[in-house]
Design a protein around this nucleic acid. Structure first.
Lengths: 326, 326
DNA sequence: TTGAAAGCGCTAACAG
DNA sequence: CTGTTAGCGCTTTCAA
């Protein structure tokens, strides 16, 4: 692969001139510059980013570590981060931690090794992994879930406890009497918060809930358990759209109709939620916006490492459709 | 950030020894090795991947350039690539080309600059971008769509034309008389192939079809056009699940029921396809498998650049549900 | 088994 | 405006 010296030789100038001509940083004689460009073209020259970054001690790459590539909520965040990064000349590499602390650590190590300019992540459980980044001074911004242990680092969250409270109250207002909740795993902050919001609304004494993985299958099983209770819930708040798929399966297989028989409100406004009958009432989270804001904060922190850490909390929006009406 | 010399100084050895001890390549006196490990630990040392890769002239990173992060088909591929790469010690960075040749070119440039070990991509339109990779000798494997211009490079495809043919015949067998097709943009190979398979089945003279972006909105409009024809189709083959969302919206807003009024077969077995009423008949593509095979081929080509290019074609599977029955 | 030294490809002082 | 030179942090001969 052609190197800068090859180009320099061909253009009859020094490597420094090639560098200057190609990067447009300093002024170069137009005629020389033209020769350089021509030579680079002829040789199919692509600057070696490794060498460049090693020398410059910086990389125009952001790492985005999310817990599930197949969850529309996170892919929407990814788009937000990417769109914003793009215009500032940064590329984004996506890593899938799979809600697994080990994988998260591995990817954080990769990020550290490759000396990325900064990382956006949805932290899994404990913060010990994040500390590694902080210790090396790599800018981080957390999305969706707060960093535990100190306000060190920016965060972009959604007020999901409040959203769960509102959603539950909406169900109460709709005339449902015994409202249940299906939330994600204990220790996952969003899952805990959504459950807490639900409890705020119904009170501990009236609570009927289960926790499961943020996946369809676990939710199906958990929903079935709830429905088989002696005094089963007549409405369900479900903590994410993937779980809702399982919940709807459980309902269908028991001949129960959403809305009429069991009121449903689901987190996340997935594209299919309007297609089913009845259409689902959902809590729409501003995922794309979360991504954009996170990228903005990260870039700001990259240019100015001394900025005080901030926490941005965005509001979710309840979209009332038919599954929460009898 | 601590460097190898810091570690060397602290352990009282040379940088060469640190390198050997930490990489375990060569034999190092156990006692020295222990000192090195301890020193690295204390300093929170993370080897600089940039420097390492620059020296070694290789990177353990694969780039995966796909045309839509929000399309479940591609995220399933991503999982397949990642799972396989992981066990061989490679990391995968995901780039979103958005079905846009410019973005694709930018990401290919990034891949080239960062000297990734290889790239998996779903090529957008013309192959001029891919040629850049080939010219530099970077191993490439194409997924979902073939590389145009020569069999230079491995490819992993799905026999989607055949799948479209079978799906259309299935509709014919179900008693539908006038079968229409909604496919993706001209020039996108999968869209062309699915349309071709449809034409194979119904014959040019009976064809009623529209093309649209691989997105919900365009498909909704196109489906509406078809349904407003003087002699509208009584069944529709839809080229991807995102488009199907638009198609179902069009049907619903006209009071038409899938199956009974208009038979539907959709490409891609999205998780929600069983939740709607009636459940959708779909063409399930082995996306995860496509990803795994692609990664396998890429790794093989990375270790042996002289391998002859291969083309793997996987079969799709028709899953019959209720939307293709009256 | 260990250390000294060269060099991967690039950029940025520093002279000229 | 241009060239010379040093060096980013690492791995890998080559000698000892």
């Amino acid at each position: 692969m052609a190197t800068i010296s090859d180009v320099a030789a061909r253009a009859g100038v020094s490597t420094a001139t090639v560098s200057r001509a190609l990067n447009g940083k300093s002024t170069v004689d137009p005629e020389l510059a033209a020769r350089v460009v021509a030579a680079a073209e002829e040789l199919g020259y692509h600057p070696n980013g490794l060498a460049r970054n090693l020398r410059r001690q910086e990389t125009a790459v952001l790492a985005l570590i999310i817990s599930d590539v197949e969850n529309p909520f996170f892919t929407a965040i990814a788009r937000g981060v990417e769109d914003l990064a793009q215009v500032s000349g940064y590329s984004v590499v996506l890593c899938n931690s799979d809600e697994n602390e080990d994988k998260e650590r591995r990817y954080i190590d990769v990020a550290l090794q490759e000396r990325v300019a900064g990382v956006v992540l949805s932290p899994t459980g404990r913060s010990t992994n994040v500390d590694r980044l902080r210790r090396q001074g790599t800018p981080v911004v957390a999305v969706d879930r707060p960093l535990t242990g100190g306000p060190d680092g920016d965060q972009v969250l959604v007020d999901t406890r409040r959203a769960a409270l509102d959603a539950t109250r909406h169900l109460v207002a709709g005339g449902y009497r015994r409202i249940g909740c299906l939330s994600g795993p204990a220790g996952v902050r969003t899952a805990d918060d959504r459950l807490a919001g639900y409890l705020d609304a119904v009170g501990e004494e009236n609570a009927v809930f289960r926790r499961a993985e943020y996946r369809a299958e676990g939710a199906r099983v958990a929903a079935t358990e709830l429905l088989e209770l002696p005094d089963p819930p007549d409405a369900l708040l479900v903590a994410n759209s993937t779980m809702t798929i399982g919940v709807l399966e459980a309902l269908t297989s028991r001949g129960l109709r959403p809305g009429r028989d069991v009121g449903i409100v689901s987190f996340d406004d997935a594209p299919w939620t309007t297609l089913i009958d009845p259409p689902l009432t959902v809590v729409a989270q501003p995922a794309y916006e979360v991504g954009r804001v996170a990228a903005q904060l990260l870039l700001a922190r990259i240019t100015d490492g001394t900025r005080r850490p901030t926490t941005t909390t965005l509001e979710a929006r309840l979209i009332e459709r038919q599954s929460s009406r009898r």
